[in-house]
């Protein structure tokens, strides 16, 4: 008796075999639609983004100020205690210079790279950050620890969305 497998199933195909019709395939494009309720915490967060401010929630037990806000603390497992405004400035905790779009296609030649970052917000607890993108910066000059500030859309263009902040730029 041996534990070693002898035969490997699985047949590799080339892209051309899929495209030239030499094997049978079925194609469909599913179109899923949703309307998500923002909820209690994120509802207020979005309202404040529309106002040009960033708000978090404070937990009196672990003393953390949490952004994005939630109505309960996942560590202390209790309702947390109050709304707290944090600043729209912060520090780059980490970042990437990305040449790939969300669907794995490559960015157009000449298009600037995507610059995602985790930004620790001033006024929130150390290590409490949000994901956003950087702008008005030379990608090669981005450093962990860099101070950045939110660049907001004009008030009349804000809709109550994370994209009401266009990007964060060095200051």
């Amino acid at each position: 008796m041996s534990g070693v497998e002898k035969v490997y199933g699985g047949t590799g195909l080339s892209a051309s075999q899929v495209e030239d019709g030499s094997i049978f395939v079925e194609h469909d494009a599913l179109d899923c639609e949703y309307t998500w309720d923002a909820g209690v915490a994120i509802g207020r967060y979005l309202q404040e983004l529309k106002n040009g401010r960033i708000i978090g929630r404070e937990c009196d037990e672990c003393r953390r100020i949490l952004v994005p806000p939630r109505m309960f603390c996942e560590i202390c497992w209790r309702p947390n205690d109050r709304w707290v405004y944090v600043k729209d400035t912060g520090t780059v905790n980490t970042f990437s210079i990305c040449y790939v779009n969300w669907d794995a296609s490559r960015i157009e030649p000449g298009h600037p790279p995507h610059l995602p970052a985790v930004i620790e917000l001033d006024g929130a607890t150390k290590m409490i950050g949000i994901m956003h993108i950087l702008g008005e910066v030379d990608p090669q000059a981005i450093k962990i620890g860099m101070k950045v500030k939110a660049v907001w859309k004009p008030e009349e263009e804000r809709t109550g969305a994370i994209t009401d902040i266009k990007y964060f730029k060095p200051y």
């Binding site: 949703y34 923002a38 994005p68 990437s96 969300w102 669907d103 995602p116 970052a117 994901m131």
Partner: peptide, 18 residues
């Protein structure tokens, strides 16, 4: 997260790179 992150069109490369 469908409200706080997805509108920025992230992919897995972003977060693993970070």
């Amino acid at each position: 997260d469908h409200i706080t992150e997805r509108p920025l069109y992230p992919n897995l490369l972003w977060i693993f790179a970070m």
